[in-house]
């Protein structure tokens, strides 16, 4: 193949890529807004027996509360992702804490940082569209496995 055809192909690919990229919503655009927790689910658990049982059922409220007691996203009611990287989390008592968020990788890792921009938690973004956000995280307390949290976008 002659070299000029390769470079023409390369130029066409770059133009095509740029066109699609500009017209496509990135996860960073989709995450902007207010979200509230909708449901929890086990994705993967330690034993096949547990897996069989857990894939269909959601966690009990008590277990959910116990496992999620240390998670920032679970402790609060509304999470507002702002375009400037700020994450405003509002508790049921209407107290608002300002943290920072960033998407890493190919837009599939959500990193939450504290006030000093030190990473606190990270979640795997398994699904995102304009209305739904699904995050996975490793549970490493008494129950081994991977849990999935689903959020819905708040409409004011």
């Amino acid at each position: 193949m002659r070299l000029r055809y390769i470079f023409i192909l390369l130029a066409v690919s770059i133009i095509g890529y740029s066109f699609i990229r500009i017209n496509m919503n990135s996860p960073e655009d989709l995450i902007i807004g207010d979200w509230s927790e909708h449901s929890w689910k086990y994705e993967r658990v330690a034993t096949p027996k547990q897996k069989k049982d857990a894939c269909t059922d959601s966690l009990s409220v008590a277990l959910k509360e116990h496992l999620g007691k240390d998670l920032l996203l679970h402790q609060n009611e509304t999470w507002t992702f702002r375009p400037n990287g700020e994450l405003h989390i509002s508790s049921p008592s209407n107290e608002t804490r300002v943290l920072y968020w960033r998407l890493k990788g190919k837009g599939d890792m959500l990193v939450i940082k504290d006030e000093n921009k030190v990473p606190l938690e990270h979640y795997k973004v398994t699904y995102i569209d304009k209305d739904t956000l699904s995050l996975n995280f490793e549970l490493d307390i008494q129950v081994k496995g991977l849990a999935s949290m689903t959020f819905k976008k708040c409409t004011h």
């Binding site: 496509m24 190919k106 837009g107 599939d108």
Partner: peptide
């Protein structure tokens, strides 16, 4: 999964 944004990114990488 139909995540075409990710498909595009991974393809370009």
């Amino acid at each position: 999964k139909g995540n075409f944004y990710q498909v595009l990114i991974v393809l370009s990488w």
